[in-house]
Design a binder for these strands. Sequence first.
DNA 1: CTGTTAGCGCATTCAC
DNA 2: GTGAATGCGCTAACAG
Lengths: 359, 359
Amino acid sequence: MSKTPEKTSGKTPGKTPGKYATIQDVAARAGVSPSTVSYVLSGKRSISETTRQKVLQTIEEMNYTASSLGQRMRQGKTHSIGVASPALRANDWSLPEFFGSIAGAAGMHDYTAGFFVDRTPQQLVELGKSRFVDGFLLIDTTAEDPRVEALKAHHIPFVVIGRVRDNTGITFVDFEFEQVMQAAFRHLSELGHKKIAYHRLPDRTSQDINNGFYIQDSLEQAKKEFNMQVVEQIVPMYRDEAFTATLDVLDHHPDVTAIIAHNHIETLHALHERHVRVPEEISVVGITTAVAAEGCIPPLTSVDVPISAMTKLAVDQLIRIIGGEAPLDNVIKPAHLIARKSTSAPMESKLVGSVSEHF
Amino acid sequence: MSKTPEKTSGKTPGKTPGKYATIQDVAARAGVSPSTVSYVLSGKRSISETTRQKVLQTIEEMNYTASSLGQRMRQGKTHSIGVASPALRANDWSLPEFFGSIAGAAGMHDYTAGFFVDRTPQQLVELGKSRFVDGFLLIDTTAEDPRVEALKAHHIPFVVIGRVRDNTGITFVDFEFEQVMQAAFRHLSELGHKKIAYHRLPDRTSQDINNGFYIQDSLEQAKKEFNMQVVEQIVPMYRDEAFTATLDVLDHHPDVTAIIAHNHIETLHALHERHVRVPEEISVVGITTAVAAEGCIPPLTSVDVPISAMTKLAVDQLIRIIGGEAPLDNVIKPAHLIARKSTSAPMESKLVGSVSEHF
DNA sequence: CTGTTAGCGCATTCAC
DNA sequence: GTGAATGCGCTAACAG
């Protein structure tokens, strides 16, 4: 199959505008009007089979692909959404899943996702007003997030992944963090655990990240609901302190039979280093994604955060809003604990008060 | 009047019902022509201070921001680049730095970076031909990468981060992998190490990922250049096998005084588990990013891969190409070993042949 | 069933 | 120094 050697011959002789054929070129060559070509492509009205074939063939011959620039211009939309994120954490293991799923979800709607790291609210507003993007996905929101106010004030479409303190009038997709601890406590309680350790987030984190609030609340609720002794340790998320904290539990709280960990990786490494078998000697519950949990040794019992599902939903909502449709109801993805291989009934000998009873 | 009686598109001065003000609106209100407004904004020709101020003030009043849609249309460019990546590895620690730096570098040129995960060469070509993006950054290229051929055949601008087997006529930015082993060997040799272990990549990986070739070559060179005993172990990148391999070294090669590791995380964990002190008892050299290396305990001596610098350069090159300029010369970022805290002189008692000499 | 036509918002030539 | 006019490539409203 030989490609047209003379690229310039598509239109007026001597004219070499862009290097691609336009819909006009195709129409001229096929002897029809531009709108016919457009309709053949979009299928928005019926075309006689004869002309359809002719147009299709010409498109093939000229190697034509519709310019999204023209389409975007005509439609007044950029077909791209912005993901506004604060500085990226260097060791966030959920990031690949996060990026991948956003890019994938956007792609299904023929949208691109562009990433805007660490931009000011003002910059985001400019990006929106200039229609550089059609709207934003906001991630890692804080309780009082200035980006939310700014975008709202300028009527720029956005969806929050997470929540802020005052969620009235905003569209969000979040995880049911207020049930996380109950789910974990319930599971451990049913297995017979009486005394557990929890790597609590430091207060500053709790205030900065909105999830912090919900998790703290959830912990208080769980403590009321279940008769469980809890050793609380302040452990910043994503830091090596979780390693030390775990060793601390082993050293100073030998009767603890389970650990609920935000940073399960470090906890597992610490236990492994001390040759403490999981779950035979101690159970571990994480809060992470299914992919990460299944990758653990042993596969981690975890309250799974459905990142892909959440981002997909968020993208869907954003595109509804961009398209002028009313968004669906806000969704808080329920927290479910998935029992994998890192939890079991506690060792008899370690059970609180059982030492004297059994020996 | 036009045709539609109700579809007043905001042409009436001072009123912008739901849409944004256009350059026409501003011009009308300021009593000048659209081109004047345009020139005030672009500074591409001189404007009398009087009108300049008036226009600027009107822009302020009407809260006008130029539509990038119109600009893109006029310029024939989308102002967005695509990053074409195979499936994202779930535990690639360099990903945040990678994404962040690409987004940042693109932002400096007023470009967005969109991520296209796991697309076929054909899909990428369509994306380019439809001017959905202006060009591509190709990452994780293989020796014979079909994406390269496809994009080249259709004259779609692209830059490779990495290299392919035949690099004639393509623009790339890469790291000097062919010097990595020499750098590591030299450092260890200077410290006095005589016998070391290397976690070699499996052959299949070497063929799939172009880096593999260069690293293997580098290893052969280094073995010739330095008088060093080398225990080679096949270890897939990014897998737990590195953990086991490290334990193997400890168990079966007690006289090894240093390890060169592609997957330093697992190696460090294994050593930590066995209570082997780094660098007192064994030295470790990694091949990773500065950020990751500095985050290690102890801070890792490493042949640093300058991800941010490479991506920035790649983005710059791509944007030159998109703009019709000739790209600068291809760059291979030199491999430098940065000595941090994970290497030191070997233990006297472990030195090959030294046991009998000293005791 | 198909063609004509009018913009989408902007940057840029050409006139003055 | 400034304004008027011209498309960029496409879709959709309006005629046939």
